[in-house]
Simulated scan of single mutants.
Amino acid sequence: MARTRFPADRGLASRMVATMFLLGLLYVVFVAVIIAIGTSAIIALFLAGGLLVVQYFTSDRIALAAVGGKVVSAEQEPELHAVVDRLCAMADMPKPRVAIADADMPNAFATGRSQDHSVICVTTGMLRRLDEPELEAVLAHELSHVAHRDVAVMTIASFLGLAAALVVRFAFYAGLFGGIGRRNQQGPPVVLVIMLVSSVVYGISFLLTRALSRYRELSADRAAAVITGRPSTLAAALVKVSGEMSKIPTRDLRSAEPLNAFFFTPALANGFSLSSLFSTHPPLQRRLDQLARIEAESGPAT
């Protein structure tokens, strides 16, 4: 990553490298199986690659469009810009674009492939609920994601899962219309083999990227606590935002769940959901316990 005053996280770096290595190895095996089967499903892999390129270069615009976020100038939102300016000066990093999403759900996110192509977005619900020190702590968390290029890494890491999912869908419809559903001289229909292999690959890649996502949230919490010198303030913001999230209508939470990997705190509706089983974020208590340890080690803020 580009040099900033956010503390380097060797644990995060090693996990990123390990995850990429495992996903790369899995991808090689996956492609080898597809080629060995001799199916035209290889087209789905190229399609996934194309989607990855589009997502990598337009992740900021896609995320803003998904939440209805609008980039705002310093004249429009001077107080918000002042907080971001102060944090960027403290972290010695380029200032990202600043955006606001008109949504009651209290949340924030940062996205973009690099520090020079990034945006940090805050919802109006977050601005109404947090005081300035709490907002600063949350934005420091999000700027840490930018500094560590988390979004770019997670975009690339998600490629294999996307490819596997597309291959499953491609194989299903091709088999449905007789394209690759023929049975080999010995063995099961080709389409079933492809769907089985792709499903296993998707499951493994899903678990690997979720584990990396949870760790990067802990890393961003640590970095924010260090750069602001106020771990307890970030903990207070976490508690407040998580408590207020329960007041948001379930329909709004469910519609926001696909963006949980970006958010400061996940939008989880009550009841069963895949997001609650395989969360992109660690449990709230684990985040609070980590911040409490940092507070105890560093002593009271001055």
Score class of each variant (00 low, 15 high):
Arg5Asp: 14
Arg5Tyr: 14
Phe6Gln: 13
Pro7Lys: 13
Pro7Phe: 11
Arg10Tyr: 12
Gly11Arg: 05
Met16Leu: 13
Thr19Cys: 06
Leu23Gly: 10
Tyr27Ile: 00
Tyr27Asp: 04
Val28Ile: 10
Ala32Arg: 14
Ala32His: 11
Val33Trp: 04
Ile35Gln: 09
Ala36Phe: 15
Ala36Leu: 14
Ala36Gln: 14
Ile37Gly: 14
Gly38Tyr: 08
Thr39Ser: 12
Thr39Trp: 05
Ile43Met: 02
Ile43Trp: 06
Leu47Val: 06
Ala48Cys: 11
Leu51Arg: 01
Val54Pro: 03
Tyr56Asp: 00
Thr58Glu: 01
Thr58Met: 04
Arg61Asn: 09
Ala63Glu: 03
Leu64Asn: 06
Leu64His: 01
Leu64Lys: 11
Ala65Ile: 01
Ala66Arg: 07
Gly68Glu: 04
Ser73Pro: 02
Gln76Thr: 04
Gln76Trp: 07
Asp85His: 07
Cys88Thr: 13
Ala89His: 11
Met93Trp: 08
Met93Thr: 03
Pro94Asp: 12
Ala101Ser: 07
Asp102Asn: 15
Asp102Ile: 02
Asp102Lys: 15
Thr111Gly: 02
Thr123Ala: 07
Thr124Gln: 02
Gly125Gln: 03
Gly125Ala: 03
Gly125Cys: 06
Leu130Thr: 02
Pro133Trp: 01
Glu136Thr: 08
Ala137Cys: 11
Val138Thr: 06
Ala140Lys: 10
His141Phe: 05
Leu143Thr: 02
Ser144Met: 09
Val146Glu: 07
Ala147Arg: 07
Arg149Glu: 07
Val151Leu: 04
Val151Lys: 02
Val153Leu: 12
Thr155Arg: 00
Ala157His: 01
Ser158Tyr: 03
Phe159Leu: 13
Gly161Cys: 06
Ala164Tyr: 06
Arg169Ala: 15
Tyr173Lys: 01
Tyr173Gly: 03
Ala174Asn: 11
Gly181Val: 02
Arg183Gln: 04
Asn184Trp: 03
Asn184Val: 06
Gln185Lys: 09
Gln186Pro: 03
Gly187Glu: 12
Gly187Arg: 12
Val191Asn: 07
Val193Ile: 15
Val193Ser: 13
Val193His: 08
Val193Tyr: 02
Val197Lys: 10
Val200Pro: 06
Val200Lys: 13
Tyr202Phe: 15
Leu207Asn: 05
Thr209Met: 10
Arg210Ser: 11
Ala211Gly: 01
Arg216Ile: 00
Ser219Gly: 04
Ser219Thr: 03
Asp221Ser: 14
Asp221Met: 13
Ala223Met: 15
Ile227Glu: 04
Ile227Pro: 00
Ile227Ala: 15
Ile227Trp: 02
Arg230Val: 04
Arg230Pro: 05
Thr233Arg: 06
Ala237Tyr: 09
Val239Thr: 10
Met245Phe: 09
Lys247Asp: 08
Ile248Lys: 01
Pro249Ile: 02
Arg251Trp: 05
Pro258Val: 08
Ala261Gln: 06
Phe263Val: 08
Pro266Met: 06
Pro266Leu: 07
Ala267Pro: 00
Leu268Thr: 03
Leu268Asn: 08
Asn270Leu: 09
Asn270Gln: 14
Gly271Phe: 03
Ser273Trp: 10
Ser276Lys: 14
Pro283Met: 15
Leu291Gln: 04
Arg293Leu: 12
Glu297Ala: 15
Glu297Arg: 12
Gly299Trp: 04
Ala301Ile: 02
Thr302Asp: 04
